[in-house]
Each structure stands twice: as structure tokens, then as C-alpha cells.
Design a protein around this nucleic acid. Structure first.
Lengths: 280, 280
DNA sequence: AGAGAGGTATCATTTAAAATGATATCAGCG
DNA sequence: CGCTGATATCATTTTAAATGATACCTCTCT
């Protein structure tokens, strides 16, 4: 009985299927079938009852499953103990408010479904501060948009997001010559810059500007008729805000990049996360 | 990192030597060297410091050693839990008083040096009773001498032992026509029978007979001048009894056999014990 | 009843890893 | 200096893992 047998068996127990387990582990189904068979022969006991729609654990299989979990966890722990830098099981990922608010929650929830043993922390800060953290190794990776220090960082994933210009509904709108611009206080924020650009394009010169450091505050400001802003499309689309806010899609996409430090040894967890992003 | 790597590493840590570990595990030395090297590369850390006379653990190696012990123990536990009959880690061995007194202690002490995880119990009883126990599966194996039920049992090991006729020193001897015979109360005891045979050979017909069920009692009886007996040579040789007892080696050896039940599935522990006996 | 979907089992074959054998290297010791 | 007793390297063999093709079973849908 090798630890690999336990990994395979654990996966079979969890998926309740030889073929599903094969899929998850990246093997071909007959291999799983044979490994389990061999394990059963070695232990001298049936671990699974095979049915035409999957398998279920026998009592002994259940007992082995418990042990398998404990043993495999201990092996992970051992690796983490011996070389914490390489095998630690948590990730610290940086992201701006706008990115973290929208994409991150769903992203990590599906990541964690596959890798339940990895802990994830999100650090939200200004783009510049986050880059410094990544540079000093305080965080493992960083979601950002726009330019970044390409000498130091390396992009491992990119996705595109629509931007929308949001403004108050007519009823809520305050009466003024020029609208107020509600922007993020981070001077590197791509949405902030897009809004300022937009105001130039439309010759809104004397607009008053309010800075916020939270996305929620900006949205509430728009709802209350305070002024207009630019945010990721998914912010308004994923909420009930469609009724309380008027929005208009901007023609170009914003690209969100996930970058890591160049040259640095990547932890197992970071590798898994990168692989996960690549598989999307 | 596979469990096999941990087994190898554990053995290296215990023997403090790659070549010794290779010997113990039945591998060739370069293989151990490569496995450890690969493990170190995988973990990204040195586990051993190599010297010209063996190896010592680094701090990280020590940490891994702790985990390895726990993990491997858990794996043994898992097997024992899933199929207790096959993987239980204790043996119950039967032996007559005469055998158990002499050979067993040293035998098991060296067996346990190699297999510290196996528990051993010795059951001492009459030869017939022990054979019944073996037949009913109450014991795993049995040391005996002379004939046994060959249809049911199978010999896996045999060793020869000298017999000695012991008698009191001249000073202690009681004055009688015929000596008293001190014999084991087990009618199947080979020493008992040898003594009775001896007495016939020497035409000692009217000897009085005393039966004892303990070897110690017989020895003490001889010391006290009560009479003569036949015991394994090692009994008198391994003690300080050479001065208090007079002895004479008998010409033929007695053969002690270790037998197990035919056809029965042998537990891992029993297999290990048989292999150990074979290696003597 | 027949065809298809979705699962497991079997088996011959390929591929990768374990294990070996021969040999090199290094340090200590008489 | 040459021997001993240890580890390292490397080409080779042997063994085990993994695959691909295919068979088989049972349930479902038409």
C-alpha cells in the first residue's frame, strides 16, 4: 500500500466513481480500475461495491478512507514543515478593490472547490502599494490592470472585462451645470483614469471630483444622485443595481492581469493557482 | 514524496548510513543514494549531511523523520484496521516450558530488534494442548520437538539442540539404591521421554519418579540432590548452574521444529517471523 | 426489443520509474 | 601509500505504472 494508492482511493471515494476519479487525477479509467483492484488484493478485502452507476464504499473502504485522509494530510504537513517556503498551503493574493470586489469571490470559490486544503488571503490596497508588496515577497501574486513593472513581474493570466459608465437615474440626478465625478482615490486606478479621460473627451472641464477609497461608497454615491463614475460591467450586472443606476457600456475592454514575481521559486500552492487560472 | 521514500528515509535515519539502510531493506546502496537525492530535490532541502562514515540528519531531516514515523505507523494501523486478520501486528506463539525457557527469550529479543512494531505473546502448555490451539487458530505457530500432526501442520524452521543428563553433585546426592527421576508432567515432553529411555538403557527399573510442571522446579530438585533429569544443554550452559549440577552430554541431538497450520492465510507478522527464522 | 449512454473490467502494449552493477570519488587510518 | 568503508555517478536491466482498444453490464429512452 503506497501513498499514491491512498490518493487514488481517496479520490475515488470522494467522486464515488472510478471514471470521474480518473478524470480528476488526469489518468485513464482502466488504470484507476487496476490500481484499486490491486489495492483490494493486497489488503485482502473489498473496498468498493461496484454498481452500474459508480461505486460506493464498503465498511472497510470507509475505514480506509478515514485513514487515507489523515495520512495524506500528514504528508502535506510534513512537506510544509520541512520546506515551508515551497510547500506552504496558503496564498496571499493582492488585488485592487474593484477587481477583488467582483471577480475574486467567484474565482476563489471555484478554486477552493478543487483545492480545499489551500488557504487564501486577499490583500486590498492601492496598485502601487501592492506592487511593492509583490516585489518584497509579501504577497504571492497580484491582480492588476494597466501597466506594471515588467522587469520584475511576469503575467501568468489575463482576462478582459467590460467597463461601464454609471450615472444616476434621471429622477435622482442633482441639477448642476457639470456632473460630479466619483473616483477611486488610488491614482493608478484604471477606472479612475478612464473616467477622467471620458470627462476630457466630452469637454467636461469644470466637473467637481470626489474621491472614495471604497467601491461601495462610489456606487452609493451614484445611486444617491451625487455624480457619475466608471466601474467594471460585472459590478452593475451582478447586482440588483440595474434599476437604481443608469449605465452605458464603454467601447473598450479593460484587461486584468494576474502577475507574479519573476525568477522567484513558486510555491506549490501558487503553481496550483496559476494552473487553475490557465484552465479557465 | 511517496510513502516508500519515507520508509527508505526512516531506515537511513535509523541506521545513520545509506549502505546499512540498503542492507536492511534489501536494496543495493546506489539505489538508496538516488532515492534520497531525489527526495531532497523534490523537497528542495538537504535532509542529510554526508560524511565519510555515514550520514547525520539535518534539522529538516529530523523533522521529516518524526513525520515519517507517524505516517508509516498510521499506514500500518490503517491496514490492521481494514483487515485485522491479515495485518494484525501481534503473534501468539506456543512453546513447551523447556523450549520457551531457553531459546525463546534470545530468539525474540533479536526478532523484536528488527520488528519493533510487532507484539509477541508466548503461550506455554503441554504439547498436545498447544497442537489443539494451533489447530483452532488460537496461536499462530508452535515450537515443538518430536512428532506432530503432519497432515495439519507444516514445519517452517528446525534447529538442533544438545541434551544433557543432569544429576546432583556427589556431595548433595541422596543415598539410595536407585536414583529418582525428575520429569516433566507432560507425557509428550521429549526430555521426559529421553530420560525414561535412558533409565531403561541403564536398567534402572525401580527408580522413583517425580513429575513437575516447571523446568525451574526440576533444576532445583537436581541441585538439592533429589534425583536426575534430562534438559536442553543450553539450560545448564547458560546459567551459573555448572557448579551446582553435574551434567553429561547425551549423544543425539533433539530437533526443535517451528510449525504453522497448513493452508491457513498467514498474517504479515507471521510471515516476518518465518522469514526471520529462515535467516538464522 | 433495440440503441445509446454511462459506468466498470480485461488485456496487450507502451512508457516511465525503480533497481542493479560496475565504477568513481572521497576521507581516514595504519 | 594503499587499504578500508563510506557515498556518488551513470549506463543498463528489470519492474511497475499508464495507456488504448475493447468488452461487458445495466439502466433509460424511443
Amino acid at each position: 500500500m503506497e501513498s499514491q494508492d491512498l490518493r487514488i482511493f481517496k479520490c475515488v471515494a470522494e467522486t464515488k466513481s472510478l471514471s470521474k476519479a480518473a478524470g480528476v487525477l488526469g489518468y485513464v479509467q482502466p488504470h484507476i480500475s487496476q490500481r484499486i483492484k490491486k489495492l483490494e488484493e493486497e489488503l485482502g478485502i473489498k473496498l468498493l461495491t461496484r454498481t452500474n452507476r459508480g461505486v460506493t464504499l464498503t465498511d472497510e473502504g470507509g475505514a480506509l478512507f478515514n485513514y487515507a485522509q489523515r495520512i495524506l494530510l500528514l504528508m502535506e504537513e510534513a512537506k510544509a514543515e520541512v520546506n515551508p517556503n515551497k510547500f506552504r498551503r496558503f496564498l496571499i493574493i493582492g488585488a485592487s478593490q474593484t477587481v477583488s470586489a467582483i471577480k475574486i469571490p467567484s474565482l476563489f470559490s471555484s478554486f477552493l472547490k478543487e483545492h480545499g486544503d489551500i488557504e487564501v488571503k486577499i490583500k486590498t490596497d492601492r496598485k502601487q502599494a501592492l506592487q511593492e508588496m509583490l516585489s518584497y515577497g509579501e504577497i504571492d501574486g497580484l491582480f492588476l490592470s494597466g501597466t506594471y513593472n515588467e522587469a520584475q513581474f511576469e503575467r501568468v493570466y489575463r482576462y478582459a472585462e467590460k467597463m461601464v459608465l454609471i450615472s444616476p437615474l434621471y429622477e435622482a440626478r442633482e441639477e448642476k451645470d457639470q456632473p460630479t465625478l466619483l473616483i477611486n482615490s488610488d491614482v493608478n486606478c484604471i477606472y479612475r483614469n478612464r473616467l477622467l479621460e471620458f470627462s476630457k473627451e466630452h469637454h467636461i472641464h469644470k466637473a467637481s471630483i470626489m474621491e472614495f477609497d471604497s467601491l461601495e461608497a462610489i456606487l452609493q454615491g451614484v445611486r444617491d444622485g451625487l455624480g457619475m463614475s466608471v466601474v467594471p460591467a460585472s459590478v452593475v450586472k451582478s447586482r440588483g443595481d440595474i434599476k437604481s443606476i443608469q449605465y452605458q457600456e464603454l467601447p473598450e475592454d479593460v484587461h486584468i492581469d494576474f502577475v507574479v514575481k519573476k525568477g522567484k521559486q513558486r510555491s506549490q500552492s501558487l503553481k496550483k493557482f496559476s494552473r487553475f487560472l490557465g484552465s479557465l
